[in-house]
């Protein structure tokens, strides 16, 4: 008899886990809260992915196609887990979707509920939502996805753009002490895209550290050496309105030791990643633990990063912490293996 495995979340990690398990002949139930699969990359219409700037459609589109064409995967859209309880070594869950409620028994569970973009409006110093020309990376990503690179306020090409790193990350003041890992690379990627679209636009990146780790460093070098993107060391502490429909970034150039107040046509806030409301909700429903950062807690960050603190429930993707799409897909596969082994042993 085939094993039954529940996958919660239809983003990159969940989709990849479901496809891998289905390939092994497992009966997979894939539960997604939105009306579509693809998670945040689909929701916010990511256009190109770092590091090789390949179309997001190549990756997310392939995953969605793979899941939709596989008959071993039972797909639930606009769905949620209404109730969940342990049943010996197995789990019993009520899945509520547009087609009604369904009670099923599973041998193991993979949680891949992902992350939420930090909302910069929570940090008032950046004046997000106060000025049209102050946007964040997900806004710019969506604009670029729609082929629109112009200023939101007047639809004209920006003369200069400021990209501010570490918004909502590495900040006790907003409550997120961690580094969101991908914003530096995403910002550098966006700087390149902006420069490719408008070569005349000056792009400045305000940084404290540039954490384009590993091979993502190539992208950062490329931004400076091929596209003349200028980096300025210092975190911006205030955004106010300026003359001629500009916004002023007030900060300190910590290398030259001095304050600056420079008007920009457009400001992009590199907002980080948060565990979102879904993480505590899952922890509560499934009886697993949250970590101190608001993400789901791994049993052992080094030895068993895909296990939760409860046997039979596994974790994959950004629900355990900020990570790149490539890492989320990789974790989907790894958690699928862990979940399969557990199901095989106990069925």
């Amino acid at each position: 008899m085939a094993e039954n495995i529940l996958v919660i979340g239809g983003g990159p990690a969940g989709l990849h886990a479901a496809i891998e398990l289905a390939e092994l002949g497992v009966n997979v139930s894939l539960v997604e809260r939105d009306t579509f699969f693809g998670g945040n990359p689909k929701k916010f219409k990511y256009k190109y992915l770092f590091p090789d700037l390949q179309p997001a459609e190549n990756v997310i589109g392939e995953l969605i196609k793979g899941a939709e064409s596989n008959n071993n995967i039972k797909k639930y859209l606009s769905a949620n887990i209404e109730s969940f309880k342990e049943d010996g070594k197995k789990f019993s869950a009520v899945i509520k979707s547009s087609t009604g409620s369904e009670t099923k028994t599973f041998d193991s569970v993979i949680v891949a509920t992902g992350f939420e973009h930090f909302d910069p409006a929570k940090d008032s110093k950046y004046s997000y939502q106060l000025f049209d020309d102050v946007i964040d990376i997900k806004d710019l990503e969506r604009m670029m996805g729609e082929g629109n690179f112009t200023r939101p306020s007047n639809g004209k090409p920006p003369k200069n753009v400021a990209i501010i790193l570490c918004v909502g990350s590495r900040d006790r003041h907003v409550g997120n002490q961690y580094c969101s890992r991908v914003c530096c690379t995403v910002s550098v990627k966006q700087a390149i895209e902006l420069k490719e679209h408008f070569p005349e636009t000056e792009v400045y990146i305000f940084y404290m550290d540039i954490r384009t780790y590993g091979f993502y460093e190539d992208l950062y070098w490329k931004a400076m050496e091929e596209h003349d993107v200028q980096i300025v060391k210092g975190r911006v502490a205030e955004i106010t309105s300026g003359p001629d429909n500009t916004v002023i970034c007030k900060g300190e150039d910590t290398l030259l030791r001095g304050p600056f107040e420079i008007p920009f046509d457009m400001v992009v806030l590199a907002s980080g990643m948060e565990g979102g409301p879904q993480s505590p909700e899952m922890a509560d429903k499934l009886g697993i633990e949250l970590d101190e950062h608001g993400f789901l807690k791994q049993a052992n960050v080094t030895l068993s990063p895909f296990k939760s603190n409860k046997d039979g429930i596994f974790l994959a993707g950004a629900c355990t912490g900020p990570k790149a799409i490539a890492d989320a897909i990789l974790e989907g596969g790894a958690a699928a293996m862990d979940a399969y082994i557990y199901a095989k042993k106990n069925s």
């Binding site: 404290m208 060391k233 210092g234 975190r235 911006v236 502490a237 205030e238 007030k250 900060g251 300190e252 150039d253 910590t254 030791r257 001095g258 304050p259 107040e261």
Partner: peptide, 21 residues
């Protein structure tokens, strides 16, 4: 040493040599 303090400072614009960071 991120410079957020100097960037926020009321005094620094008046006395550039006053730099909390």
């Amino acid at each position: 040493q991120c410079g957020m303090c100097t960037a926020s400072c009321t005094v620094t614009p008046l006395y550039r040599r006053f730099n909390p960071r």
